[in-house]
Amino acid sequence: MDANQKHETSPEAADRKEGMRLLARATLAELAAAWEAILDKPEVAPVRGPETGLVMVRGRIGGGGDPFNLGEATVSRATVRLSTGEVGHGQLLGTDKKRARYAAIFDALFQNNAHRPAVEALHRLIAARLATEDRQKAEETAATRVDFFTMVRGED
């Protein structure tokens, strides 16, 4: 429990968590291109997977009450160890094991000071694309907002 709390509060863990959030949304093209751009690539050894399985998605009664099981979703995950020693985890929705493996590699590279700037650049790239997509969707939805107006009544 103490260890958990330490992780939760440490800025290092928060950065890694945010990085994993972004990697889970990266396209295969983004990941492959970023991997190609790395010059002194370390060796990558598999520790677990890549493998596909299920997670049970849960909701809350009434939206904010006690949890209930809503249904499952497919998840692909991988754990890798770099020749430089870092262990990385990748996990994302769907059945794409290639993306899960890349996500694990970049999570491991993120912990390596020499490679960290390249991973942070990838994070920024993904974040920028997501921000544009989210913005676009929000604007499209906003355009369907109803502006009510009161009809003038014919009273005399």
């Binding site: 260890a3 958990n4 330490k6 992780h7 939760e8 863990a13 890694r16 968590k17 994993m20 959030r21 889970a24 949304r25 997670v55 979703a73 998840v75 985890h89 996990q91 994302l92 929705l93 769907g94």
Partner: peptide, 14 residues
């Protein structure tokens, strides 16, 4: 999803 090996929950996507 909570990852016990890390001690925190990570986002899998939307």
């Amino acid at each position: 999803l909570d990852l016990p090996e890390l001690g925190f929950a990570v986002s899998l996507g939307t």
